[in-house]
Design a protein around this nucleic acid. Structure first.
Lengths: 203, 203
DNA sequence: GGTTGTGAACAAATTCACAGCG
DNA sequence: CGCTGTGAATTTGTTCACAACC
C-alpha cells in the first residue's frame, strides 16, 4: 500500500483549501491514478465513504494517518555523516512529516562529537545505547555501498526494525525487519534507458 | 526494466573481482531476486548466455550498458538550489555513474551567479539557453512541492525529455517525456506503516 | 552435467462495470 | 441521480519446469 501516503498528501492539500468532501474521481486525479484504484485502496481501510457524496476529507485523513502509524513522530537515525547523510539530516521534509532526525552516526572518530545542522554526531559503537535512549525505530543508511551490509546488521542488532537504504548495494535484513531502498543513480539510469528508446523510436 | 541497473552493478562487482562468467543463479543471488527472473530479463536483451556455462560478465555488461544508454555521459541539470539541490549537486554518485551535474538552476536571483560544489548556479530564465549550451537531457526537480509543476513545464519547454522529481507533489509532463519520482518522506511513511503492523501482530 | 531460454501455470495488480445505497 | 464498494474480467508480472544446447 505504497499509495496511501500519496492520497494522504492530496487530502492534506484539500484540507488546506477548506474542501470538506472529495470523490474518488477527484482524488484519483490529484494522486495521478485511476478512480477504481482509489476506491479499492480506500475500501481496504474500511467503508469510510458515503455513496452519492464521496469521502469526508478530515475523517479520511484521520483514519489514514492512524493506519499509516502517523499519529505520532518516529525519530530516525542516519548512519553515515558524509555528503548524503549530512544533506538528509538537513532536509526539512523529514521533520515536517513526522520523522525528526534524532542522531547522526558515523564510523569515523573524527566526525564524532559535534553537531551537524543541529543533529548530534555519534560513533557507530554507541548505536545500541542511542537506540535505547532516543527510541528510534527507523534507520537510514547513507554510507558507501561497501559498508551498507555491515551497517544494516548493526542497526538490526540495535533493535531497529525498519531500514531505508540509500547505498547502491543489495542488502539483506533479518526476518521481521522492513527494508526499502532509494538508489538515486539508478533512477537516472532508468531515465537514460527511456531516452535511448525515445531516440530509437524517432529514428 | 528497472532491474537492469541492479544487474549491471552486480556485473561490475564481478568484473572487479576478475570473475569472467556468471550463472543466472549467482547473479540472482547478488541482485536479490529469483533466477528465473534474471533469465527472463536478460533474454529480453537478446541471447547473450551460453548453456551449461552462464553469461560472459564483460560482454553482458557491454550489451546492458548499450541497452541502458550508458555508453556515454548524460549531463543533468538540477532545478532548486536549496538544501536538497545542493546536496544532490555534491553527491558523488551521479558523476561516478555517468551523470555529471552540468548546472544548478534557481528562481531566486540571490543564489544565481556563483558556484556550489563547483557547479555554476544560473537563473531559471536561462534554462533554454543552458539546455542548448550544455545539452542536458535529464532534469532533476529539487524545489518545494508548490513549484514542481511549473518547473516541470519549464524543463519540458526547454527540451528536457527526462525528469526526476524529488518534490513531494504529483506532476504531469507532456507525452513523450519520461518521469520518475523519489519521495524521501514517503518512503519513511511506508516504513512506519509496516512498523505499526509489526507491533499489531506482536500484541 | 550444467545452464540457458521460454512456454505454460500461477499470482498479483489493475481496471471494468454495475448493484446497492444515500 | 451520483458515487461508493466490490465481484468479475483483464492485464501484468512472477515462478515453475523442462526441452534445447554447450
Amino acid at each position: 500500500m505504497a499509495r496511501l501516503p500519496v492520497y494522504l498528501r492530496s487530502l492534506s492539500e484539500l484540507h488546506d483549501d477548506k474542501i470538506a468532501t472529495v470523490s474518488s474521481e477527484r482524488l484519483a486525479e490529484m494522486a495521478g491514478v485511476n478512480a477504481a484504484k482509489v476506491r479499492k485502496d480506500l475500501s481496504y481501510l474500511g467503508s469510510y465513504g458515503t455513496r452519492g457524496v464521496g469521502y469526508d476529507v478530515e475523517y479520511l485523513s484521520f483514519q489514514m494517518s492512524r493506519e499509516l502509524g502517523l499519529t505520532h513522530d518516529w525519530p530516525v537515525v542516519i548512519v553515515g555523516a558524509g555528503n548524503l547523510g549530512q544533506a538528509l539530516a538537513n532536509y526539512g521534509g523529514f521533520r515536517q512529516r513526522g520523522f525528526p532526525v534524532a542522531a547522526l552516526v558515523d564510523a569515523s572518530r573524527e566526525k564524532v562529537g559535534g553537531y551537524i545542522h543541529g543533529v548530534p554526531v555519534h560513533h557507530m559503537d554507541d548505536l545500541p545505547a542511542l537506540a535505547a535512549d532516543l527510541g528510534f525505530a527507523i534507520g537510514i543508511i547513507a554510507t558507501p555501498a561497501s559498508a551498507a551490509q555491515e551497517v544494516a546488521d548493526a542497526l538490526a542488532a540495535a533493535g531497529v526494525r525498519s531500514i531505508l537504504n540509500f547505498a547502491p548495494a543489495v542488502i539483506t535484513v533479518p526476518e521481521g525487519t522492513s527494508l526499502r531502498k532509494v538508489d538515486l543513480a539508478l533512477e537516472l539510469q532508468v531515465l537514460s534507458f527511456y531516452q535511448e528508446h525515445q531516440d530509437a523510436d524517432e529514428a
